[in-house]
Design a protein around this nucleic acid. Structure first.
Lengths: 233, 233
DNA sequence: CGGAGCCAAAAAGTCAGACTTATATGTCAC
DNA sequence: GTGACATATAAGTCTGACTTTTTGGCTCCG
């Protein structure tokens, strides 16, 4: 999807990373570089590079005379896109999806408020275009097309906010939305109320009404929480 | 501070990472592994490991026959604690501090609301203790002691929310608060109103009043935004 | 019996050198 | 100009030897 097969060490990571994030090695487990290298049939240099990457993600810790120990989940760099992807691909998927949706509910409304204040004319137009695209594809089981517009919409909101931390969550939100469409129960057409809210957000942003954009986006993310049975107040 | 000198490749990262995040190498710059290895007086294996880590942070991209090219800032993994630390230590500090404070303003209120619903008795007690500690040290130029309690307070809020994504922002918030006390203009005692708000948040959490905890925390983070002259609506 | 200190093994860390592979770029014929 | 081909370049890989740190056990002495 993103960066497939960037060398041998990448292949090792594609196997080891998911295994660790899936909890196959409980925290404190000890791996030996040499054994891993043999198991994956790569040289020690390649294996060492892979371990370094896992170490930079705080998934493992490498110490002399002891080996490569798996760190507890609480220490992982859970914002690393690679880690998120691995977890979304594994057994942890439902839990990860919930965590990310809660994060969205915190971030997106504030981002929308900033976007209402900072968006350029082009970004406003793009936003409106996305919203209209959502309307157009919201009926008749055109879920894939709808998803494209939905993802684009939220991406613009996050990018146009002018905050780099928000902007970098675009990929994460895309994964969450895609996950909802593909793996969760969503055979029906999207909720018409949600579609309307997106159109209204686009309007509010165009009008520069930050408070309204924030409130409307809050309603959108609240809907996402309810879909996952995360009780709202 | 966190993991100093974990080998030769760590030393290389401590120099190269800050240099890149500081923008010393403009996007598109090309580095050669061999030259870097010579410059840092390490073997190519060590240099390669360092490059792999930078690559996993999306700071650089390594391609055959081209070299190691620096990626544009927009592609960096800005949530990587190591990257955040490097940027906070360099010229990008003010900008980074603002970005993170805006992120705080989005995340912490929602986290506080969740904490009000999920916190255990112990966590409530800990929170109250932190708030009282802040009150006790809020006068008489005891800024360092105040900071300790302030950091602990926000850490508990984020941890007790029950959301792993929020929990992992504890370190980030700690850096921001420490930065404010140490490097920004803050010779005076903390704002009494802010101190009061913290006490009230602790009360709201204890009472299980999510809406109130959220609103009060929003006021706290609003104050932080105003301190940095980030205009509020 | 218990603690201080020492020893040896284990595993990561480091290095050097040779070789392989992909690929950007230049060259030449058409 | 365009396409095929050759070439140089820099990353990628492998191997083997060596170093360094650290742990766990062992001895020795109190």
């Amino acid at each position: 999807m993103s960066t497939p097969g960037r060398g041998l060490h990448g292949h090792v990571l594609d196997t080891l990373g998911p295994a660790i994030t899936a909890g196959e090695y409980p925290p404190g487990s000890v791996l030996r570089t040499d054994e891993l290298a043999q198991h994956f049939e790569v040289s020690r240099s390649v294996m060492r590079e892979a371990v370094r990457v896992l170490e930079s993600m705080h998934l493992v810790e490498s110490r002399r005379r002891v080996g490569v120990t798996v760190r507890p989940k609480a220490e992982w760099n859970v914002y690393d896109p690679q880690v998120i992807r691995w977890r979304l691909a594994g057994a942890d998927r439902p839990h990860q999806l919930r965590s990310l949706t809660v994060l969205r509910s915190a971030v997106e409304p504030v981002a929308a408020g900033l976007t209402a204040k900072n968006a350029t004319a082009e970004q406003c137009a793009e936003l409106t275009e996305c919203a209209l695209g959502m309307v157009a594809t919201s009926r008749g089981h055109r879920l894939e097309e709808y998803l494209v517009h939905d993802v684009a919409f939220h991406r613009v909101i996050l990018m146009a906010s002018g905050n780099e931390m928000f902007a970098r969550l675009g990929d994460v939100v895309a994964e969450v939305l895609a996950g909802r469409t593909h793996h969760e129960v969503m055979f029906e057409d999207p909720d018409p109320a949600a579609v309307t809210l997106h159109v209204q957000v686009a309007e509010a942003v165009r009008a520069g009404d930050a408070a309204r954009a924030e409130q409307l986006t809050r309603e959108i993310t609240m809907g996402a929480l309810e879909e996952l049975d995360i009780l709202a107040p």
